[in-house]
Computed example of a mutant assay.
Amino acid sequence: MPQTQPIRLDGQLCFQVYSANKKFNHFYQQALKPFDLTYPQYIAMLTLWQYAPLSVKQLGEYLHLDSGTLTPLLKRLENHGWITRSRCEADERTVVIQLTDKAKEQQDNVFSRVNSCFDVLGLTPAEKEACSQTMATIEQKLDLYNQTQI
């Protein structure tokens, strides 16, 4: 007879993260709907609002995404007037992403919609920081584990 204890769904940290992620996705889907932005597009814009101009490679490093994933996302952002993409004059292999006037003008409107997430959660600054630190620890430990599996 097996000695292994059964793993219960309600005891799975990964399921709690998965479930919370689905709920966050729903929140962001509603919050970003007026801007016709998806969550991946939003985090790209968030990074660009902070650091633009960026190359596609630099943006991918911030978001942990490869260019194959970023290219269609950036194409949609460009088609909707949020960004422009152009080849770097010094190195034509490098594509540089710039914010448009629309992106600059809409930044505060997007932030005001998304910042309501903290109101919805009702977390104190200390609780938010504790959650952030816990998630960072989980990410670091998973990174270490995944590196040992390569």
Rank of each mutant, 00 (worst) to 15 (best):
L46E: 15
G60N: 06
I43C: 11
G122F: 07
L123S: 10
A130C: 09
Q12I: 11
N25H: 12
H80V: 06
A130Q: 15
E89N: 02
R113M: 08
T69G: 06
S132R: 09
T71F: 11
D143Q: 13
L48V: 00
E89I: 04
N115Y: 08
A44T: 04
Y62A: 01
V56Q: 11
L74I: 03
C88M: 14
T69H: 13
Y39Q: 10
P72F: 00
Y42F: 15
C14S: 12
C131F: 12
L65T: 08
H64L: 13
I7T: 13
V96L: 15
M1G: 06
Q5H: 05
T100E: 12
C14H: 09
K57L: 14
P40G: 02
P34M: 08
F118T: 07
E89D: 11
N21E: 10
Q5R: 04
S116D: 14
G60Q: 09
F27M: 04
Q106F: 12
L74C: 08
R85P: 06
H64T: 11
G68D: 15
H26W: 12
A103T: 03
Y62G: 00
A52E: 01
E78K: 06
D101I: 05
A103R: 02
Q147V: 03
Y51R: 04
Q50W: 04
L32D: 02
V114W: 00
T38D: 02
D66N: 13
G81T: 06
E61I: 09
T47P: 00
C88R: 05
V17A: 07
I150V: 13
T100K: 03
L70Q: 03
M1F: 04
I97V: 12
I138G: 03
K75S: 12
Q140L: 13
W49V: 05
D101H: 03
E92I: 05
K75R: 09
L74W: 01
Q50C: 08
Y62M: 03
Q133E: 14
A136N: 08
S55R: 06
K102S: 08
V96S: 01
L123W: 15
L48E: 00
C117A: 10
A126H: 09
L65M: 14
N21S: 10
C131H: 09
F15L: 08
N146W: 14
R8Y: 15
K102C: 06
P125K: 02
P6D: 03
M135G: 04
E139M: 08
